[in-house]
Each structure stands twice: as C-alpha cells, then as structure tokens.
C-alpha cells in the first residue's frame, strides 16, 4: 500500500543516498560538501518522519549550519590545493572490494528482511520528540549515559589537541652511532 508517508520516506532516502554518493565521489571538494549537505537535510527529513522534531532541528542547526559551513571555510582557505589529483593506483582492488562490500551488505539486508518477524517496539508517548520530553528523558532515565558521554567528548577534544600540537618542540631523531670495530684478541 502506498501512502504519503511511504512516498515521503522514499524521497528522503533517495536524496540521502544521492547526497552520500556525491560526497564520496565528487572530485571537487565544494561539490563534496554540497553532497554532504543534501545528505544531512534528507536525514533531518527522515528524523521528522519519526516524530523526532527536536533531533531534526538539532541536525539542521549543528550539522548543516555549523559543520558544513566549517568544511566550506577550510576548503576555501586551502584554495585550489584542496582538489586532489586523480589517483589510479589500486583502482581494480578498490572497485572490486567496494562491489564486494555492497553485495555483502545487500545480501545481509535481503536475509534480514525476508526472515524478520516484525517486533512491535514500545509505542511512543504523545509528546515524543519534543524538546520538553527529550530533556526529561535525557535528565531522568538517560542521565548515566549522558554524564558518561562527557568523557567521550573530553577524549575527542584532548585527542585533537594532542594530534594538532604534535609538530612543535619535536626534533628529528639523532642518527644512531655506528659500533666500533672489535679488536681481535
């Protein structure tokens, strides 16, 4: 049965797939960033269809608004050097493993869809997905993982600093000294 919801889902899914493909395959980094933007917008649309309005809004503000813009800044700062030369090394293995992976993923999907019993997941309450209920969930039942995710963010920031700072104060290793020729006794 085709409902408006299904049509909406397929449109968003097709846009997301197209955007992802463009982001991966574009040689011009600006086009790649635009493909990413399409993917993010389509994902926000999918979230909306799941009644997750807050998540959709956050997706738009954080990813589309902040991260893609950051990418664009970096690409523009780098200028023409951001476009990489076409690299044909290992083309066949790359294409072969890509195709193999897609086939494996498709086989997995077919296997899952054909044999799946549809489990009715717990229904969503009326206010599901609103900022209000999201906040209540986050600070009540989900408090522990929320607090623990602080460690994850901290590690990510620290890791970025550690990797970015690496070049300063680090000198080339000294060449090793050769061993003296041994005297025969």
């Amino acid at each position: 049965m085709v409902t408006l919801g299904t049509v909406y889902f397929y449109i968003c899914a097709a846009l997301a797939l197209g955007g992802a493909l463009a982001a991966v395959s574009a040689r011009n980094p600006i086009r790649g960033a635009m493909g990413l933007l399409v993917l993010i917008l389509a994902m926000a649309g999918l979230f909306l269809a799941l009644h997750a309005q807050f998540l959709a809004a956050i997706q738009l503000i954080v990813y589309a608004g902040a991260i893609v813009v950051l990418f664009l800044f970096v690409i523009m700062l780098l200028g023409p050097s951001a476009t990489s030369q076409r690299d044909l090394r290992g083309l066949y293995p790359r294409v072969f493993s890509g195709v193999l992976f897609v086939l494996a993923a498709l086989a997995t999907m077919v296997l899952v869809v054909r044999g799946a019993k549809y489990v009715v997941l717990p229904g969503t309450p009326r206010a599901f997905g609103s900022i209000d209920s999201f906040g209540k969930d986050l600070f009540n039942s989900g408090l522990v993982p929320f607090e623990l995710s602080a460690a994850l963010l901290m590690v990510a920031v620290l890791g970025a600093v550690a990797v970015a700072k690496g070049k300063q104060g680090e000198s080339k290793a000294l060449p090793a000294e050769p061993v003296e020729p041994q005297e025969k006794h």
Partner: peptide, 26 residues
C-alpha cells in the same frame, strides 16, 4: 550492561588510543 553505554565506553577508549598512536607526529 547496555548497548548504549557499551558503545560510548568503547569509543572513549578507542579515540584515546587513536590519538596516542598519532602522538609522534613527525
């Protein structure tokens, strides 16, 4: 005891390990 915290912990552990591996940037 939950897949969510399991994944959070795993990523925290792994991100730290990635950054430490890249520590010698030169």
């Amino acid at each position: 005891g939950d897949l969510l915290t399991l994944f959070l912990g795993l990523e925290t552990m792994s991100l730290g390990a990635y950054a430490m591996t890249a520590f010698r940037k030169a």
